Deep mutational scan, measured.
Amino acid sequence: VFVDDHLLEKVLELNAKGEKRLIKTWSRRSTIVPEMVGHTIAVYNGKQHVPVYITENMVGHKLGEFAP
Protein backbone atom coordinates (compact mmCIF):
# COMPACT_ATOMS: atom_id res chain seq x y z
CA VAL A 1 0.00 0.00 0.00
CA PHE A 2 1.41 3.39 -0.99
CA VAL A 3 1.05 6.51 1.17
CA ASP A 4 3.27 9.57 0.71
CA ASP A 5 5.62 9.84 3.69
CA HIS A 6 4.88 13.51 4.41
CA LEU A 7 1.14 12.85 4.53
CA LEU A 8 1.47 9.82 6.81
CA GLU A 9 3.77 11.79 9.15
CA LYS A 10 1.17 14.57 9.47
CA VAL A 11 -1.64 12.10 10.17
CA LEU A 12 0.36 10.17 12.79
CA GLU A 13 1.45 13.43 14.45
CA LEU A 14 -2.16 14.62 14.75
CA ASN A 15 -3.24 11.21 16.06
CA ALA A 16 -0.52 11.34 18.73
CA LYS A 17 -1.74 14.80 19.82
CA GLY A 18 -5.39 13.77 19.57
CA GLU A 19 -6.12 16.66 17.20
CA LYS A 20 -8.46 16.72 14.20
CA ARG A 21 -7.63 19.60 11.86
CA LEU A 22 -7.59 20.06 8.10
CA ILE A 23 -4.62 18.51 6.30
CA LYS A 24 -3.85 19.97 2.85
CA THR A 25 -2.29 17.62 0.31
CA TRP A 26 -1.47 17.37 -3.36
CA SER A 27 -0.98 13.60 -3.04
CA ARG A 28 -4.01 12.15 -4.86
CA ARG A 29 -2.10 8.89 -5.38
CA SER A 30 -1.92 8.03 -1.66
CA THR A 31 -4.00 5.11 -0.43
CA ILE A 32 -6.34 5.76 2.50
CA VAL A 33 -5.18 3.83 5.58
CA PRO A 34 -7.07 3.18 8.86
CA GLU A 35 -4.98 5.84 10.67
CA MET A 36 -6.66 8.52 8.52
CA VAL A 37 -10.25 7.66 9.56
CA GLY A 38 -11.93 10.65 11.21
CA HIS A 39 -9.64 13.25 9.65
CA THR A 40 -10.59 15.80 7.01
CA ILE A 41 -8.04 15.93 4.21
CA ALA A 42 -8.12 18.70 1.58
CA VAL A 43 -7.17 16.95 -1.68
CA TYR A 44 -6.02 19.08 -4.63
CA ASN A 45 -8.01 18.43 -7.81
CA GLY A 46 -5.89 20.58 -10.15
CA LYS A 47 -7.82 23.75 -9.40
CA GLN A 48 -8.62 23.83 -5.67
CA HIS A 49 -8.39 21.79 -2.48
CA VAL A 50 -11.54 19.70 -1.93
CA PRO A 51 -12.18 18.78 1.74
CA VAL A 52 -12.77 15.03 2.13
CA TYR A 53 -13.90 13.57 5.47
CA ILE A 54 -12.38 10.09 5.76
CA THR A 55 -14.70 7.25 6.86
CA GLU A 56 -14.04 3.52 7.37
CA ASN A 57 -15.63 2.67 4.00
CA MET A 58 -12.92 4.67 2.20
CA VAL A 59 -9.99 2.60 3.53
CA GLY A 60 -8.10 0.97 0.66
CA HIS A 61 -9.16 3.55 -1.93
CA LYS A 62 -7.02 6.41 -3.28
CA LEU A 63 -7.51 10.01 -2.08
CA GLY A 64 -7.95 11.20 -5.68
CA GLU A 65 -11.11 9.10 -6.08
CA PHE A 66 -12.96 11.43 -3.70
CA ALA A 67 -11.82 14.76 -5.19
CA PRO A 68 -13.28 14.96 -8.71
Rank of each mutant, 00 (worst) to 15 (best):
V1A: 15
F2N: 08
F2G: 09
D4I: 00
D4E: 08
L7Q: 01
L7T: 02
L7S: 01
L8C: 06
L8F: 13
E9S: 15
K10E: 15
K10Q: 15
V11N: 01
V11S: 01
L12F: 06
L12E: 06
L12W: 07
L12C: 11
L12N: 12
L12P: 01
L14W: 02
N15G: 03
N15D: 03
A16V: 07
A16R: 13
A16T: 10
A16K: 11
G18H: 07
E19W: 03
E19S: 08
E19V: 13
K20R: 11
K20T: 07
K20E: 03
R21H: 12
R21N: 11
L22T: 13
L22W: 09
L22Y: 06
K24L: 11
W26C: 15
W26A: 11
S27V: 07
R28E: 04
R28N: 04
R29W: 10
R29F: 14
R29H: 14
S30A: 03
S30D: 02
S30L: 02
S30Y: 02
T31V: 12
I32R: 00
I32E: 00
I32L: 05
V33R: 04
P34F: 12
E35Q: 12
E35K: 04
M36Q: 01
V37L: 13
V37F: 11
G38S: 10
T40Y: 07
T40W: 10
I41P: 00
I41V: 06
I41L: 06
I41D: 00
A42F: 04
A42Q: 04
V43C: 07
V43Y: 02
V43Q: 00
V43E: 00
Y44A: 05
Y44I: 08
N45W: 09
N45V: 06
N45T: 09
G46W: 12
K47M: 12
K47L: 11
V50M: 13
V52T: 08
V52R: 04
Y53C: 14
E56C: 13
N57D: 13
V59G: 02
V59C: 14
V59D: 02
G60Q: 08
G60P: 01
H61R: 14
H61N: 09
K62W: 06
K62N: 07
K62Y: 07
L63Y: 01
L63P: 00
G64W: 14
G64H: 10
E65M: 11
E65R: 12
F66Q: 05
F66V: 05
F66K: 03
F66H: 06
A67I: 05
A67V: 07
P68I: 13
P68W: 05
P68V: 10
P68G: 11
